[in-house]
Design a protein around this nucleic acid. Sequence first.
RNA 1: CGGGGAGUGGCGCAGCUUGGUAGCGCACCCGGCUGGGGGCCGGGCGGUCGCCGGUUCAAAUCCGGCCUCCCCGACCA
Length: 428
Amino acid sequence: MTRLSGYLLPTEKQPPGDAEATSHKLMVRAGLIRQMGAGMWSWLPAGWRVHQHAVQIIREEMDAIGGQEMLMPVLQPAEPWRKSGRLGIEELFKLSDRKGSELVLAMTHEEAVTFHVAQIVRSYRDLPLILYHFQVKERDEPRPRAGVLRTREFIMKDSYTFDRDQVGLEQRYELHVGAYDRIMQRTGLRFYRVRSDVGMMGGLGAHEYMAPCPAGEDEIALAPGYAANAQVALRDPDVRKVDDRYVRAGEQLSIEPAIEVGNIFMLGTRYSEPLGARYLDERGDEQFVWMGSYGIGPARIVAAAVEQFSDEHGISWPRALAPFAAHLVVIGGDGSPERQAADRLYKLLSAGGVELLYDDRDVGPGEKFADAELLGCPLRLTVGRRALDSGEAEVQVRRGRRDAPGLPLRGEDGQLIRAVRELWQSLP
RNA sequence: CGGGGAGUGGCGCAGCUUGGUAGCGCACCCGGCUGGGGGCCGGGCGGUCGCCGGUUCAAAUCCGGCCUCCCCGACCA
């Protein structure tokens, strides 16, 4: 479905000179992202495919718990932010239009969504609600860093729940715990759900979804059956310091760096009060809506996957995120029998719905293999002299670079497609 | 915001100390050979040396100011 000869995939042999983090180096080298300024990144076609794969997983799991997708603006009037008391936040971009009206670029959407719910929701019958969107967030970060791991502009899925009372909120929160657990499992990431600081949100409970990786900027404390944000762990009465080590229930805690890919908060009435989100209950009494807020960053999921799954040759995507399921390499010039066989395989698998990248460029085999391993699609199919001799396209699994049984070039179409699908399904 | 580092063709870098008008590798273009791990030969294109000002006969190089980017820390609804 995609021919590399006409595809914008600018791979580089060398990483940017100023790159430090693995994901930063590899994502640029693999042609997934390019930088425009500090904390400002473009996603190139292959990178955007990965990002969209993460988005789609999140969307499916949000829909599965009854979430309703919508879209709210980034450019917003300052007024709701003044009401919520957050207009003074330093990270909030403020600007004014030609008429002098005060505007902000939203860094999150509690104000917007609460503004709407305050206007629309009147009765207990209108609740509960789970609303979400994927939207750009703008934050005037003091220090963007590590490629796409910490940027000033990024896409976030943020959902908001609206309930009649705390019991309802706790139910909506639990639904999110389930959805987030499934999202993380489907991405193929190593992750921990840890209790986090409720912090300034002043909420009733909060968890973070942390993906351990060297470039992570947070720390998590781990022991068998225990995982917590490191700061939270240090305040845990069960955690003690012994000989400069932290111990909990007889088990030593290990501290690992991790990147926060998602977080969930019980907000209570923190926003519904200042923004006037109220409803009438069964007895006609006015009540504040109970809210929750739940964020997850597709870009961080992607970067964390690169951090967790790469080797000296490049990226090794979990199959759910990979830009393509398979990377077809042909070795042989235009018009060669190898080309003919590869062309046929390409058309057949593409028609069969396999997400396939076909390296049909007129370059040497070494370059093709190197680029394939850098980009890191889970499967590599090779059609060259050997394949013609044996009658089978060679198959290599990227993770571990191990050989898998070949694909018969002359096999029955449906069977071939099924074989690729099954192989793909069996991968991590 | 504090500390450190860096801006020289698309990418990675050298040249700066000791001023004399820019070089290397990769990439790119053309021709040929090659075709299972970034291959080879030949010929090319491409740079106001981050910006502004100063010193000088002459500035990538020296001086002053500014901008941008990276790293460590602080920060991170």
